[in-house]
């Protein structure tokens, strides 16, 4: 167990836990955006920055709790930094409900930067969702710096994408969702098409909705595979 102090309150937490978990353990709320409990911590949006005893600001979601650490989750420096980060986020994605709510909570009342309506904040949740929960790795980051974006290899519709919709589900700013029926998109957009979203290769894994076939949109519905089922790429599939 590791003992540390968060906002002056002593907390004991298991080895390897993050500062975010330590704060949550005490019921202290730290805003997060690129963090999801079901995915690996990434530390990209920096909204969860907290101030350490030595004056450094670190992201609570990735920083490991260490013995004797002193952490302040809402110091004036932290709050000033969070407000600026939210202003930056809003300037890229002004129409996002999630960001607007964050802005309201933090009294960010104006955006002083030139607004770009990009509908993606590159938090990487969809990339991690695809890789870690859906085991697909259909999407990823390309390029770097101000040219960075998320797409499939070579911007082509990916063969490993099962159109599970996990990326849309987890997106905090709805980029992939807002493309419309006709809009061609390498990432997906297929939720807007009337055809069922799930291809018949699900078996019983990896449907974010719950058990395979539960939502009723799978082709053919849930059915147990047997030796008569046809194979696709070496795997038994439902017809």
């Amino acid at each position: 167990m590791t003992k540390l102090r968060v906002n002056g309150i002593e907390v004991e937490i298991e080895e390897g836990a993050s500062l975010l978990e330590a704060a949550q353990h005490l019921g202290i709320e730290i805003p997060t955006l690129c963090f999801h409990p079901g995915l690996s911590a990434y530390g990209a949006c920096r909204l969860c920055v907290v101030e350490l005893g030595d004056g450094r600001l670190v992201s609570a979601c990735t920083y490991p709790a260490q013995e004797g650490l002193r952490v302040r989750t809402h110091s004036p420096r932290v709050m000033r930094a969070r407000r600026m980060l939210i202003e930056l986020l809003l300037s890229i994605c002004p129409s996002s409900k999630r960001l607007q709510d964050l802005a309201a909570e933090h009294q960010v009342e104006r955006v002083r930067f030139a607004v770009r309506d990009e509908r993606c904040i590159l938090c990487g949740l969809c990339v991690r969702m695809c890789a870690e929960q859906m085991m697909a790795r259909a999407i990823g980051f390309v390029n770097r710096g101000y040219r960075r974006r998320i797409t499939t290899p070579f911007d082509l519709r990916s063969e490993v994408c099962r159109r599970c919709g996990g990326c849309l589900y987890i997106c905090p700013v709805c980029e992939a969702r807002c493309q419309g029926v006709e809009a061609p998109s390498a990432v997906c957009g297929s939720c807007m098409t009337p055809a069922p979203t799930c291809p018949p290769v699900y078996e019983d894994l990896a449907c974010y909705m719950g058990a395979a076939g539960e939502c009723g949109t799978c082709v053919g519905g849930p059915r147990t595979l047997d030796s008569h089922s046809p194979t696709v790429a070496g795997r038994r599939v439902r017809v």
């Binding site: 990209a44 980060l85 930056l88 986020l89 980051f141 770097r144 710096g145 040219r147």
Partner: peptide, 12 residues
Amino acid sequence: DESCGKCLPCRE
């Protein structure tokens, strides 16, 4: 250009 683009403050 050389920022990897992972974290918001550096990229944006």
